[in-house]
């Protein structure tokens, strides 16, 4: 069947962009292929993995199931828009420092889902983070570093500069018996 095309103005990371695309193309396709914003990844294109998560009007949504044609007039945020000038967003910086991004493929989606959570709740509990991110699969990290990085970033965003991620996140837990001998 012949394709119906459309030209819309999408507001991506605060910048309006006029872009032409076929109406059946998802936001994921338009971001990656028309706008060159390849930071948004994809893992299934069926809404089953969370990898393609972006923010629309501040809410994390699956860009693989969102038609770009329906995004006009809405605010779209992708991982490329997270940095503040040449500085990493605290979430980005905590993820990088703790190793919460290993292969880094699920990372953009998780960063955005976490950003939405922290915008709503500046001191989420561990359970609240788990719940908010439970639709975003990661195969590398075992999730712990991600949780610790988000807690650290939350503290930094609250202005709590004293907060440090738990030592065990970086060095492992103190080996029983060893400390007594070594210290």
């Amino acid at each position: 069947m012949s394709q119906q095309s459309t030209t819309r103005t999408l507001r991506v990371n605060g910048e309006p962009q006029q872009v032409a695309f076929a109406v059946h193309h998802s936001l994921l396709e338009v971001l990656r292929e028309e706008l060159g914003l390849t930071g948004t990844k994809h893992g299934c294109e069926l809404g089953e993995c969370g990898t393609c998560t972006v923010l629309i009007d501040g809410k994390p949504v699956l860009s693989c199931l969102e038609l770009a044609a329906e995004c006009e007039g809405r605010s779209i945020e992708t991982v490329e828009g997270m940095m503040q000038g040449n500085q990493l967003h605290p979430l980005q910086s905590c993820f990088a420092d703790l190793g919460a991004a290993q292969c880094g493929y699920c990372t953009p989606g998780i960063l955005l889902a976490a950003q939405a959570l922290l915008a709503e709740n500046d001191s989420p509990t561990r359970d609240q983070i788990v719940e908010a991110l439970s639709g975003n699969l990661c195969r590398c990290t075992g999730y712990h570093k991600i949780l610790e990085a988000i807690e650290w970033a939350a503290a930094r965003l609250r202005g709590d500069d004293q907060y440090q991620p738990p030592n065990s996140a970086i060095y492992g837990d103190p080996v029983p018996g060893k400390q007594a001998k070594d210290v």
């Binding site: 390849t38 930071g39 910086s93 990372t107």
Partner: peptide, 22 residues
Amino acid sequence: PFRRVDGRAKVTGQTRFADDLS
């Protein structure tokens, strides 16, 4: 502990995976 050398690229979307190339 140090920040992995590709840490920044991976949290900013800069890392170019094969499907990101065109």
